[in-house]
Design a protein around this nucleic acid. Structure first.
Lengths: 125, 125, 125, 125
DNA sequence: GTGGTCTAGACCACC
DNA sequence: GTGGTCTAGACCACG
């Protein structure tokens, strides 16, 4: 369910958050679905329970899930909408990199092309 | 010549590396040009000499400059070509994020718009 | 585990790099083994943590180890192969010096003898 | 007459000493020959006069040349013999590297082979 | 506990 | 003046 890179520079708890969000965005996790418990998941991934706790707390803070003490942790009704907004925020990352590329003299066409290819079109605009 | 953000999460030495590469990419620093000395720059930016040393060492490792002990540090002949490759590699980052955005249902137009806006406006950083 | 010469002209951090490579080459350090932590080693050798950090960073750059932040630093799978190549490259140094000696009229027997003596005796350093 | 590498890690004055010794060892510079003056050579090589002064002083200290104030600097009668001894001292370098190679598991045959090839023989011993 | 970054200040060799 | 190395000590994020 999750794939952890222990040597990368992005913290494990962030990887958990990210991947959970991706699961919600892609519809694999839907409203009312139960998230794996900290204990189980910590064993499965050989990850410190505190790390998972931190990830889940953050997901809760963002309103993507809610814990029912003693029963587990469940995806909220708003989750899908919320991750949509969240992901849109990543356009900022695109902007940041694009700014660098512009400063480095990479033409806009190359950047647009990269995006278009990902979206499945050969050429556009 | 350099602009340091002391509160961001990216280390100062990386900012120096980045901006130096940008100066080379944009042709402001050319083959044979001397980089500002560690001491002088450290005063100018109020940054510790060691931090700059670290940045410069990394640039040297990447083949962008070379030090002549006692004389200073100079931009190499390959520098321009090397940073070109380096920056084009960042298109991969764009692709990676774009893939995530597509999966999250963000329409391609929004992504292209983000890029175009960056390339269209004057303001930087 | 390590032996530091504080009075020689070779920097401490290079000595660390060298000796670590030797430990890998001789199989004492194997894939997956954890390197002594910066803090612990710094105490053991009475060497500043930063100096060790520098050595380890370089080893990491060369692909001999990899750091899992918060967990430690581990020998990579490629390490053994890589140091093998590294060390064989030093035969070039031998060749360079031998060329000088030949030009200076030192007979080949003396050079071979020097090598044989080293390989023949037990004592080290 | 001299070839200077301004970017290498070996100091310029050492390069001068080295190359002068090589010229003596190979018989190009003989007893009584005049060395190029500091002024002339400094211009020719675009090297700081102080640097050359340092090199020449060291050569004098080793007894390879002697300065006749106002007349120039000349190779001594002992020079050839002395550089011979000096070069023989470089066997220590060979020993040092051989020691490293042994520790790294490189077989003695490879080292001997490297030496033999330089001395013009394919196989020996 | 781990690694990563930064500062302040020192010393050295070389030019 | 230049770069290179080292120490001491601090702070941070992560697990």
């Amino acid at each position: 369910m999750f794939q952890i890179d222990r040597f990368g520079r992005t913290p494990i708890y962030e990887q958990i958050i990210d991947q959970t969000q991706r699961l919600i965005a892609s519809g694999i996790l839907k409203e009312g679905d139960q998230l794996p418990s900290v204990r189980v998941l910590s064993q499965e991934l050989s990850v410190n329970p505190n790390t998972l706790q931190k990830a889940y707390s953050e997901l809760e803070r963002r309103g993507l899930c809610i814990s029912a003490p003693g029963n587990g942790r469940f995806v909220t009704a708003d989750a899908f909408r919320l991750v949509g907004e969240e992901f849109r925020g990543r356009l900022d990352e695109i902007r940041r990199i694009a700014k660098e590329l512009r400063a480095a003299g990479v033409p806009v066409e190359e950047v647009l092309e990269a995006v278009n290819v990902v979206y499945g079109k050969e050429k556009e605009e």
